[in-house]
């Protein structure tokens, strides 16, 4: 299995698509991206540590399961008239209930919800 450092490095690499495959400029940018990524991840770890020291059980932290958040977005799609997309979204969610599925689907759904709407929808094909 790959460690966190390798995975973060790979994630940064994907976001260097505009640069030549090798060279000093790429190295500099990759280092900057990694610094930024680790800055965010580490600040979150320290934030979580502070929260766990001060918070009592069951206080404040959002505990809505990722699946429920996706269902809320599905409702939004229906309201916006995207009935077919909402239907498909709910079918896909149901597929994630099967045995032997990945253990971290809840966390990944949280991630997808956080990123929802961050890119424009694909152009419609007629």
């Amino acid at each position: 299995t790959m460690g966190i450092t390798r995975l973060v490095s790979d994630l940064c690499e994907i976001h260097l698509a505009g640069l030549p495959r090798t060279g000093a400029l790429r190295d500099v940018w990759k280092r900057r991206l990694k610094q930024k990524a680790y800055g965010i991840l580490l600040s979150r770890i320290f934030q979580d540590m502070r929260t766990s020291k001060t918070a009592s059980v069951g206080s404040g932290v959002s505990t809505t399961p990722g699946k429920n958040k996706v269902l809320m977005l599905s409702f939004n799609l229906r309201v916006c008239g995207r009935e077919e997309d909402a239907q498909r979204l709910e079918e896909l969610l149901a597929m994630l209930d099967g045995p032997g599925m990945l253990h971290e689907t809840g966390a990944v759904l949280d991630l997808l919800v956080d990123l929802a709407g961050t890119v424009p929808p694909p152009p419609q094909l007629f």
Binding site: V70, L73, L77, D85, R88, L89, L92, L93, L109, L111, L112, V113, L115, A116, G117, T118, V119, P120, P121, P122
Partner: peptide
């Protein structure tokens, strides 16, 4: 596919 439907990119 969920990512695509949600425009998560």
């Amino acid at each position: 596919e969920i990512s695509r439907l949600l425009n998560s990119g």
